[in-house]
Design a protein around this nucleic acid. Structure first.
Length: 410
DNA sequence: CTTCCACAGGAATAGGGGGTCC
DNA sequence: GGACCCCCTATTCCTGTGGAAG
């Protein structure tokens, strides 16, 4: 840990001073760390020429004020869908000299609800709606009205569009919104239109879609295959050239990152992320090059941060459920978890929630990756979830103890 | 082959805090 | 102020179910 007191002649102050001096003396290994941000769009996007050309071709009518086909981009995470869409949209935007032609980017998952997605689109189009209070259909009507009455021609990128329809609660609203948007213009006249670039990595997506919406949404499709490890190496090498000073990242390290991040399904975002965090760690250590062990540490640190973030932002009942699961060595049935949970509630003087709710919470924690809770059938002995922790026990407990209330359950 | 466990998980509903609109 | 809206958590009630025990 940290050595209190003074080492050698200098005191704490000198130690701190030395850290700053070290930081100043070393040239630093970063040249331009912006290049490693998630939303950085490089000049050159390798291995995606074909997709870029196709998307540009499909969108080209826009420059003449004509509605292009709707496009659907699909492929797994980190295969460059968003980057390509933003890249092409960016170039398109810069070649336009037309007030009426707009390009909007909305991430449907970040927006969270159909309402807020529409709200965002309205915002980009210069219509500020109340962020709550009016009905969805009212908002939808207003935004579309705003677009048509101003004669706007809109190309909207709906990233993670599956989130508009993937829950039963949203399904109808999401379908309706997409339906209205795909139909928009066909009856408006006046040159106003909306074209949609949909992006999704969930291939079950179409199951949730209304058939009419589905066919309307993908006049065209562009597939993004995973990057191979070799391709990842090229991508990393290009980023390294831009981001780091010469000699800071060896080929060996690049290969290691590519293998590590790309091994499963060629996720470039993950690879670049790993590179960035490894660089930050190396920098903090005052090292002038990234080593394999920096990368390993980076991978562990990314994982730890995720767990910490996930646990500390949990509401109290979720934390208690997690604690209940951790109190067992072996995987347990929902029923036993629930019993333990009610004990904890009693100890804290909190009113326990119903088992139905706890069952949902267990599922939510499963989705978050904190728990593993597959449903198992034990014949005569019923049907339940076998709940166990999906994160290191001690680590999870440490985070839970940060909570003021839970601390007293030691 | 039937029974029956121990829940899963859908549906309807409520309520409370955020709001708009007239 | 009253009608109505969104969003989220939570409750109540409910029907469904794979397979070991009998």
């Amino acid at each position: 840990m940290d050595s209190t007191g003074s080492e050698g002649v200098g005191g704490t102050k000198d130690v701190v001073k030395r850290i700053f001096e070290d930081a100043m003396r070393s040239r630093g290994i970063f040249k331009n760390r912006e290049v490693l941000n998630i939303d950085y769009i490089p000049e050159n996007i390798p291995f995606r020429e074909e997709q870029i050309k196709r998307l540009a071709g499909i969108l080209s009518p826009v420059v003449k004020g004509v509605k292009p086909s709707n496009v659907f981009l699909y492929g797994k995470t980190g295969t460059g869908k968003t980057m390509v869409a933003r890249y092409v949209a960016g170039v398109l935007e810069r070649t336009l000299h037309d007030e009426k032609t707009k390009i909007a980017y909305v991430n449907c998952r970040q927006s969270g609800t159909v309402y807020r997605t529409l709200f965002e689109i309205g915002n980009v189009m210069g219509y500020s709606a109340p962020f709550t209070g009016i009905s969805l259909s009212e908002l939808q009507g207003r935004v579309l009205q705003h677009i048509s009455s101003n004669g706007y021609r809109l190309t909207v990128i709906l990233d993670e569009v599956d989130f508009l329809v993937n829950s039963p609660v949203k399904r109808d609203a999401g379908n309706d919104m997409l339906y209205q948007m795909t139909r928009f213009g066909s009856y408006e006249g006046g040159g106003s239109f909306i074209s949609i670039i949909g992006i999704s990595n969930d291939l079950r997506f179409k199951e949730y879609l209304d058939a009419r919406v589905f066919s309307g949404l993908r006049d065209e499709e562009i597939f993004f295959p995973p990057y191979s490890v070799e391709e990842l190496k090229v991508i990393l090498r290009e980023r390294v050239k831009e981001a780091f000073v010469e000699g800071a990242v060896s080929d060996e390290v690049i290969n290691y990152i590519a293998a590590r991040a790309g091994g499963e399904h060629g996720d470039a975002r993950r690879a670049v992320d790993l590179l960035r965090v490894a660089g930050e760690i190396a920098e903090r250590e005052g090292s002038d090059a990234i080593t394999i062990s920096h990368v390993e540490e980076a991978a562990a640190s990314v994982e730890r941060d995720k767990v910490k973030e996930a646990i500390s932002s949990l509401p109290i009942h979720e934390k208690l459920v997690l604690l209940s699961v951790l109190s067992f060595e072996q995987p347990q049935n929902t029923g036993y978890i629930y019993l333990k949970y009610t004990e904890y509630c009693k100890a804290l003087g909190v009113q326990p929630l119903t088992q139905r709710r706890i069952s949902s919470i267990i599922s939510e924690l499963d989705v978050l990756g904190l728990l593993s809770a597959p449903v198992v059938n034990s014949g005569r002995y019923g049907r339940t979830k076998k709940v166990s922790s999906a994160v290191p026990r001690e680590e999870a407990l440490a985070h839970l103890k940060e909570d003021e209330a839970i601390k007293y359950l030691f």
